[in-house]
């Protein structure tokens, strides 16, 4: 690794599912503070790559290094405690709990670590965590819905709340799996605005996205994945002009 700014390095990762070579020879370097988009046609291995990074899947070979720490072989909660948060394609939220509690839980994880037997303190006395959660909800424009059950939110709001659940942990790396999938144009645009806002906070982001409008409005760097391999890498303009990319993906889609 020659570039000192690289915070996430996916090195020589292969992933096989039986005979299927889902990821082949993936080498990906994400620089600190950048928004790095991974695009590619359906079945290119984008989600598999994200699952390997977050520890949901173990790579067949290769390693993932985050800021000097090897992620491969660690459990999802350990990876989170290193400062990596993830937004899922289908929001993973606490549907039975209130919006406020949904956001307080990750804040407690950040403060108290993976396990703490704090059963004598009342939740009411956690004023610091409470204020943090309220400010976060204010930021994403959901303060008015704080007492609603999270399960009764609209799809767009669930995503926004899940994003808030990640942001309250001030992660160093945020992984976003198709954050606007299935959203209306209006919801997509508000999400882009929100993501742009957090871009200025200097957080590193890896984003998987189908929607080219979203990708080109947010990404600093783009890697194009096709059939489990990275076929192109570079700034949005470089990628847009790459004939291989147009053949594999953009040409077909547009």
């Amino acid at each position: 690794m020659t570039n000192p700014n690289v915070v996430l390095h996916v090195a020589d990762v292969h992933k096989r599912f039986g005979g299927l070579h889902a990821l082949a020879d993936i080498d990906l370097q994400v620089e600190e503070g950048q928004t790095h988009a991974i695009i590619g046609p359906n079945g290119a291995g984008k989600s598999t790559l994200l699952n390997v990074i977050i520890g949901k899947l173990a790579p067949t070979s290769g390693t993932v290094v985050f800021d000097g720490a090897i992620l491969t072989g660690r459990k999802p909660y350990q990876i989170n405690q290193l400062g990596i948060a993830r937004v899922f394609q289908t929001p993973e939220i606490f549907a039975d709990l209130s919006v406020l509690h949904n956001v307080m839980i990750p804040a407690l994880a950040k403060r108290d670590g993976a396990f703490k037997l704090n059963m004598l303190r009342g939740l009411d006395s956690e004023t610091g965590i409470l204020r943090e959660a309220q400010d976060m909800l204010e930021d994403v424009g959901m303060y008015g819905r704080r007492d609603m059950a999270a399960g009764s939110l609209s799809r767009g709001d669930k995503r926004r709340m899940e994003l808030a659940m990640c942001l309250i942990q001030h992660p160093r790396l945020l992984l976003l799996d198709e954050p606007t999938a299935g959203m209306s144009r209006h919801d997509t645009n508000t999400t882009i605005e929100l993501l742009k806002k957090i871009k200025s906070r200097g957080m590193t982001k890896v984003i998987i996205e189908h929607d080219m409008h979203v990708v080109f409005s947010l990404a600093d760097k783009i890697s194009v994945l096709a059939q489990g391999r990275i076929i192109a890498d570079g700034t949005p303009d470089q990628v847009r002009g790459n004939p291989k990319v147009q053949e594999a993906y953009l040409g077909g889609a547009h």
């Binding site: 939220i93 509690h101 037997l117 659940m165």
Partner: peptide, 28 residues
């Protein structure tokens, strides 16, 4: 006291969505 403590909220979180608890940094 347990129900109203942060610990109690973690238990409710585990009941509601254990996957999210893991990705939120909790060893459940």
């Amino acid at each position: 006291r347990i129900t109203n403590s942060p610990f109690g909220m973690m238990l409710k979180g585990i009941k509601s969505n254990q996957t999210r608890m893991n990705y939120t940094g909790f060893n459940t």
